[in-house]
Computed example of a mutant assay.
Amino acid sequence: MTTSIDSIPPARRSATPGPERGGGATLADVARRAEVSRATASRVLAGRAAGKSASHARVLAAAEELGYVVNGLARSMMGVGRRSIAFVSSMMVGPTFATMAGGAEDIATANGHLFTMCTTGGDADREAALIETLSEQRVAAVLLVGSTPATEEFDERAQRYSATLARVGAQLILCGRAALPHHPHIASIDYDHLGGVRSGVEHLVELGHRRIAFLGSLDEMTTPHQRFLGYQAGLADAGIAYDPALAAQSSNESDAAAATTIAFLQEHPEVTAIVCQTDIMAVGVCRALNARGIAIPAQISVVGFDDMQLVADLTPSLTTIRAPFHDVGELAGRIAVGEPYDGPVVLPSRLIVRGSTGPARA
């Protein structure tokens, strides 16, 4: 289930409204049919009453006859019943977030929790309102997923989210985002962005490449920034001076990456390899090269990041960095259901060599 909250104002509401009454049987109806008090009916239906009394049997029979459905949201707001675990991201970007969500959902459902997926459109006010709403609904944990601004403002915002959730016994878990050094109580499960790209550059250097370009968003969001640092670190390891002119900027869309590649290579025909921030960008790069009759990898090698399923089926198949998205989600899910958090986790990324990289052209 994907939730958007355009209609929820960012300001904190002064009261916590209960769920609207539907058209079905109510607790009062069950109590009346069973000839017991509402308190007794509530205890029976919540599983907090002895199971051998006549009144217990009458309540269960009345609920069955009337088709009464227990209000799970109301129960969770009272601290009983199943509590949900929320997966919150700015948007659902391809299969990568879906794989991460799958890992978390496996753990959540196995432990009796409802798993919900919510998007914020990258709007900080919508994000704050969503955290407030989830806390009002007594969520068990919020998995805040993906890249975030590497700023003091975000650190303060995350601390506010953590405090809001803590008031209802819930926790904030950063998923695919590095730990916040000043807030060690906020859990972080991440993977190695920098080391992954660094290994891609190392692979190209071993193939004889020296004029290696980088295509990315080149902004200060955590994921792009870490991957760009990995590119620079890989060059430094090989004794290759970083040339700012070989860093090309593009949004994370294949069409944009293709257009950027065409213009970039007109200015830098000496480039023999391109490292891309994501597989989506790499697909655009490969499409642009194929359209211009530039052979991959004979003339230009291409490296991506993410190892999306489709890239193994490209011609040639894409050399890329495999990120452990499912494992990140699974570990975050385990913390969400109550397993101990012993400090930040950074899972390794792995270079997957395929057909899009080869020896540098002479």
Rank of each mutant, 00 (worst) to 15 (best):
S4Y: 12
P10I: 15
P10R: 07
R12G: 08
R13G: 09
S14N: 08
A15V: 07
T16R: 12
P19V: 15
G23H: 14
A25E: 14
L27R: 14
L27I: 13
A28K: 15
D29R: 14
V30C: 04
S42M: 06
R43P: 03
V44I: 15
A46S: 10
R48E: 14
A49N: 14
A50E: 05
H56W: 15
R58H: 05
V59S: 03
V59T: 02
A63W: 03
E65Y: 10
L66W: 06
G79Q: 10
R83T: 06
A86D: 11
S89Y: 06
M92P: 07
V93T: 15
G94V: 12
T99I: 15
G102D: 07
G102M: 09
I107W: 05
A108R: 06
A108I: 09
H113A: 01
F115Q: 01
F115N: 03
D123R: 13
A124Y: 11
D125G: 11
D125I: 08
E127N: 05
L130Y: 13
L134H: 15
E136I: 13
Q137D: 10
V142N: 15
L143C: 12
G146M: 10
T151C: 01
E152F: 14
F154V: 01
R157W: 08
T164H: 04
T164V: 04
A166M: 14
Q171L: 08
Q171W: 08
L172E: 03
L172H: 04
C175M: 15
G176K: 10
A179V: 15
P181A: 10
A187W: 09
Y191L: 14
V197P: 06
S199D: 03
H203N: 05
E206I: 10
I212S: 07
T222F: 04
Y231P: 03
L235K: 04
A236Q: 06
G239S: 00
A247M: 03
A256D: 04
A256H: 05
A259Y: 13
T261N: 02
L265Q: 02
Q266L: 08
E267F: 15
E267V: 08
H268W: 02
H268I: 00
P269C: 11
P269F: 15
E270G: 00
E270V: 01
E270A: 03
A273E: 03
A273L: 06
I274D: 05
V275Q: 00
D279C: 07
I280H: 02
A282Y: 10
V283K: 02
A288Y: 01
R292W: 09
R292S: 15
P297K: 07
V302S: 01
Q309F: 13
L310Q: 08
V311M: 01
V311F: 04
D313S: 08
P316N: 02
T319R: 12
T320F: 06
F325Q: 00
F325K: 05
H326G: 14
V328I: 11
V337T: 13
G338S: 11
L347H: 03
L347D: 01
P348G: 01
S349E: 03
S349W: 06
V353A: 06
A360K: 15
R361M: 12
